[in-house]
Nucleic acid binder design. Structure first.
Lengths: 212, 212
DNA sequence: CCAAAAGTGTTGGCTCTACACCCATGA
DNA sequence: TCATGGGTGTAGAGCCAACACTTTTGG
């Protein structure tokens, strides 16, 4: 039997968070897990991941990428279930809706502070975080975690948050702008202080670029 | 149903080659494919890949890494079989023996000159080559393609072969030696010309290092 | 006019690239 | 002694990191 499980990420309250559901049935009942379920016969793996993600979050679209396949026969006490893990990214944690009857409830957890997880989902979490962080360094994947328009400060905060280290504002800005992956918009964001120029990604699809 | 398929690489006759088997049974009968087969209930994916590799090549050990999982329901006309693709590397193409009764025969093919492949194995081939080439740039994975002892010229040839471009001998040597991933051995290789210093990898296990 | 965030340049050190000749050996 | 592959150094250019003050706005 083949399942898919999806590690969904978003930036929420200035932290990298991931969406967990509480299992209502099965051996992990009462425990938290990433949303997922069995692949149907005749169904594409990607489609299964999107379907399960929709059932648990009502999301209609998200960046989705296959991560790794976990096949330890002891990972699920019910039997030998091979699980294809996916990573999903969305720009706005508020987009999600109520999960289906299949789950008790769902909520966001900070990546550094996850509860005990069902099955081998802790492994998946570690794998997904590693992939996301490393992909930030050689691709424009950040586009999937940021809203359409954002200030340069927001862009930089995302990087410094995920990389876990401060970045030099001037050097970082110079490098990123020289790459041409962002385009500056004609309008600005007004606030209590000096208005900030708004940017958006030149390409809203994955590109491989040496970022750091 | 879950299968594993393994793209085995070795350098042979100065080219990157991969090992194909000729299918004796099933819908791809008479066609070439990467060695693989169904995962048994209770079996680890890695173990299944090693078992299938052993059955088709008699190899007892090889560098093995999971690549990607292919799940298109139409990939196998017999039914919906999800296949976990692996990449394997060996230092010496001569190590392999005769395949089991399961296959008609097996042989090495140059990566740039593969015959028509069964199932979606052309996709796998492309994926594996891409992974191998990119991993050369940020890890010491080359250790799995080279014999225990090698000359610096052999090391450089491997890189220039796989990257598809010439390397500056002096610059490349300076950089690699400065990294400390190789250790020079006390003996040399004698031949018809000036003897070459022999090196081996300081670590015979995968390390992530910026190589280029 | 004050608080707060946005925005901007220069310099020194280091790294990378380009490039050509001598060395050690066996035949 | 010659043919063959092994092995080595330098200089100029470009890149990167470190570093602090001015600008713009709203309240």
């Amino acid at each position: 039997m083949v399942a898919v499980d999806t590690v969904l990420f978003a930036i929420k309250d200035g932290r990298l968070q991931t969406f967990l559901v509480e299992l209502r049935r099965g051996p992990g009942r009462g425990r938290w897990a990433f949303p997922g379920g069995l692949v149907r016969v005749g169904e594409l793996l990607d489609s299964a991941a999107r379907r399960e993600l929709h059932e648990s979050t009502r999301l209609r679209s998200a960046y989705l990428e296959q991560l790794f396949t976990f096949g330890d026969p002891s990972r699920d006490p019910r039997g030998h279930v091979v699980s294809v893990a996916y990573m999903a990214l969305i720009p706005d944690a508020q987009q999600i809706g109520a999960p289906s009857y299949k789950y008790e409830t769902g909520r966001w957890y900070e990546v550094g502070d996850l509860p005990q997880l069902a099955y081998d989902h802790s492994l998946m979490a570690a794998y997904a975080v590693k992939r996301l962080k490393s992909k930030l360094e050689y691709s424009n994947i950040a586009y999937a975690l940021l809203p359409r328009e954002f200030t340069f400060a927001e862009f930089e905060e995302l990087y410094s948050l995920l990389l876990g280290r401060p970045l030099d504002r001037r050097n970082f800005r110079r490098r990123i702008l020289a790459m041409g992956i962002l385009k500056q918009l004609s309008h600005t964001r007004r606030g209590p202080h000096r208005p900030a120029a708004l940017y958006s990604f030149a390409q809203q699809s994955l590109r491989f670029i040496e970022m750091l």
